[in-house]
Computed example of a mutant assay.
Amino acid sequence: MAMPEPPPASFTPVPRGRGSTLSPDSRYAAWTRIHDAEEALAAHGIAGADCDDGEDGCNPATVLEIDRARSVLSYNHSPDIPFDRSINPYRGCEHGCSYCFARPTHAYLGLSPGLDFETRLSWKPDAARLLRAELARPGYRCAPIALGVNTDAYQPVERRLGITRQILEVLAATRHPVHVITKSALIERDVDLLADLARDGLAQVMFSVTTLDDELARRMEPRAARPARRLAAMARLARAGIPVGVLCAPLIPALNDHELESVLEAAQAHGARTAGYVLLRLPHELRELFADWLVRHYPGRARHVLSLIAQTRGGRLNDARFGHRMRGQGVFADLYRQRLQRACARLGLHARAMPVFDTTRFRPPAADARQLRLFDE
């Protein structure tokens, strides 16, 4: 299969603190437009011709919308992941990671997986109430909940909205096990709740650390905590008795894959007990978005990176099949697996797996008192 050429680089600079300039239309729209980068920026109130790293006009504002979901728990039957339910307090993510596999989900909202994904966010103000109601259902069976899988539960807006902490308060009150994945140091705010859960074997936190290179992190994850800050947060949680691990996700050929051992060593030194990795996935619009990001930031190696990705995906840029989508196939994929196993053995780390949580401690919340009063009238 012939390798696709990366899209031509535009002279329009990337907005400060954002990971994308493109705004491809939702793939579910009845029609699509052809954008140039100037038009995409203008749609978000940015004058491309005037855009300069030192000007406020280059920092598109984050817009929040309320998500009136009727349920907060999402279930899956994927054999690739070690949990069957998760909670995502937010849709979209301010971190703006260029590689985020969740970007295409913004198309479900009729929004662009590009700049919209990191600037037009939905939040669930009723998340804690909905969770309490779902845990109180007679047929509910306790199993670990993964928090912040699709988008980071500790992204910057969480600092003022506090939805994730409200969710943790419900889980702590009901003694429900939780598995958290984040790349944010904001999680330190909730050490009290996580340590309380961890004392009963009910909590684990995995930190996503893609690189130790600050410059690469700044370009690839513009609003996420710097690598050293994530490691410091990992160490603080470990000192509080919370099991922590590191997730090298995503592993990108010829960009950050050479850092695998270094990241594991740094994480182990900061208290990590487990480790794992996920090979870069490029579903749907992410193929175009990531290729554009590559050609803007690393034009000299863009074609090489895309070629190596295709070699791990059977000649394509994405392979959505179970058993392949997380790890890939071929020589490079086998090498990554061997490198992780050997590094974990040398450092005393466990290959990533969901720990055995004590689900017997779960106590359903009390039924809604307002419903009980209906029988007294």
Rank of each mutant, 00 (worst) to 15 (best):
A2G: 02
A2Q: 14
M3G: 12
P8M: 07
P8W: 02
F11A: 09
G19S: 14
S20K: 14
T21L: 13
T21D: 08
L22F: 06
L22H: 12
D25I: 12
D36G: 07
D36Y: 01
I46E: 03
A47S: 03
G48A: 15
G48Q: 00
C51S: 12
G54Y: 10
E55Y: 10
D56S: 14
C58F: 08
D67K: 03
A69V: 06
V72T: 11
S74N: 02
Y75W: 10
H77N: 09
S78Y: 06
D84L: 09
N88M: 03
P89L: 06
R91W: 03
G92T: 06
C93Q: 04
S98T: 08
S98W: 01
A107Y: 01
S112E: 12
P113E: 05
L115H: 11
E118N: 09
P125Y: 04
L130C: 01
L131M: 05
R132N: 01
R132I: 01
A133R: 14
E134H: 08
E134A: 13
G139R: 14
A143I: 01
I145R: 04
I145C: 01
Q155I: 03
P156W: 05
E158M: 00
L161P: 11
G162I: 01
Q166S: 15
A172Y: 08
I181L: 15
T182A: 00
K183E: 11
V191F: 00
D192V: 05
L194S: 04
A203V: 03
M206F: 13
F207N: 07
M220H: 12
E221N: 07
E221C: 04
R236I: 06
R239H: 09
G241T: 10
I242M: 09
I242H: 09
V246L: 07
V246F: 06
H258N: 05
S262F: 00
E265N: 11
A266N: 15
H270A: 11
A272S: 10
R273L: 13
Y277V: 03
Y277D: 08
L279I: 03
L282D: 03
E285Q: 08
E288Y: 12
A291E: 12
L294N: 09
V295T: 15
G300D: 15
S307M: 07
L308C: 07
G314K: 05
N318H: 15
N318Y: 15
R321K: 05
R325T: 13
Q329I: 00
F332A: 14
F332T: 07
A333N: 14
L335R: 14
R337V: 08
Q338R: 15
R342V: 00
A343G: 02
A343V: 04
C344Y: 05
L347Y: 08
R352A: 14
A353L: 02
Q371C: 13
F375S: 12
E377L: 15
